[in-house]
């Protein structure tokens, strides 16, 4: 994918013969202008809103944000969810992609089914899982048909089961995005490499560790960045399932904006998300790039 695009074919075309505006600039200029106007300007407004009131610069809104009883739980939940979910999701997606690669029976049907959540909004996904996990939902019903006593999976005093419910729902909803990217990445890797390693007696895990994953690195990098940024953005599933009991930072942004009608604190919360997403993206770029170069040397 583009972020870690192999540089080889890129530089070959278009040696600039005449001195005038390079075509690349003409091609990207509309997008830059458009984004600066519709995204850059609101972002600047947002930053200003978080730090300014009628009198000028103020930290009042940041203070309000930090003192809110939901703030630190929200930060903790957001980080916990991402740290646990992303590795699970990638392991699952890579496993699913490798399964598809071994051509199981009906692999086209399986692929179709696994991709369906890709087009599903997070709000709809929240409703889907609410029908399952609520106290009188399908999970407890199924347990009761087997003569088992159900549990209040989403009750506020049961943080662990609440977390697991949100985790399962998010795995269901968002793994397909990673799957698609990994499947596409796998298609770009010629099977010969894997077969060669097999001939030399490498086990499945050795081949995965030393052949497949290194070759998948560019795809994984994009998937990681995109998925993590999107993970910081979603809260509808958690909100549908747990209401206010499992607060997430984006959900808090929304609550401050719509429920409490305080756009300033909402902007401060949004900045927290922006900064954390940027830091993680840079971290991914660094971590994966360094290893990549080490491998080439």
């Amino acid at each position: 994918m583009a972020v870690e695009a192999p540089p080889t074919p890129a530089a070959t075309v278009a040696p600039p013969r005449r001195r005038r505006i390079p075509p690349a600039v003409l091609l990207i200029a509309p997008s830059v202008i458009f984004m600066a106007l519709l995204l850059g300007w609101p972002v600047i407004q947002g930053v200003l809103q978080a730090f300014r009131d009628e009198q000028g610069f103020t930290l009042e809104f940041v203070n309000r944000m930090v003192q809110d009883p939901y703030f630190w739980p929200a930060v903790r939940n957001t980080l916990l969810l991402i740290v646990v979910m992303i590795p699970l999701q990638f392991a699952l997606a890579i496993a699913m992609a490798l399964m598809l690669r071994s051509n199981p029976r009906l692999h086209k049907v399986h692929f179709f089914v696994w991709a369906i959540p890709l087009a599903l909004s997070d709000l709809a996904a929240g409703l889907v899982w609410l029908s399952i996990f609520n106290d009188r939902g399908y999970l407890n019903s199924a347990l009761s048909w087997f003569g088992l006593q159900g549990a209040s999976w989403l009750a506020y005093d049961n943080q662990t089961s609440m977390f697991i419910c949100v985790l399962i729902a998010e795995l269901w909803r968002a793994t397909s995005l990673v799957l698609i990217i990994v499947v596409a990445g796998l298609q770009g890797i010629p099977k010969d490499y894997d077969e060669a390693a097999q001939v030399f007696g490498a086990t499945f895990w050795q081949r995965l560790r030393h052949v497949t994953l290194p070759l998948l690195k560019p795809s994984l990098q994009v998937a990681l960045i995109l998925r993590t940024i999107l993970a910081f953005q979603t809260f509808a599933v958690a909100q549908a399932l747990t209401g206010q009991n499992f607060p997430l930072v984006v959900g808090e942004t929304y609550r401050w904006y719509t429920g409490l009608q305080n756009p300033n604190v909402a902007a401060a919360l949004a900045l927290v998300i922006l900064v954390v997403s940027m830091l993680t993206s840079v971290f991914y770029l660094r971590a994966l790039r360094d290893k990549n170069q080490g491998g080439l040397r």
Binding site: N134, S152, L154, Y156, D157, T242, G243, N245
Partner: peptide, 16 residues
């Protein structure tokens, strides 16, 4: 009921 923290409208849990 601890599930109360998920109730927005009481008519539903009552009806159920």
């Amino acid at each position: 009921s601890p599930a109360s923290t998920n109730y927005d409208y009481m008519q539903e849990p009552l009806a159920r």
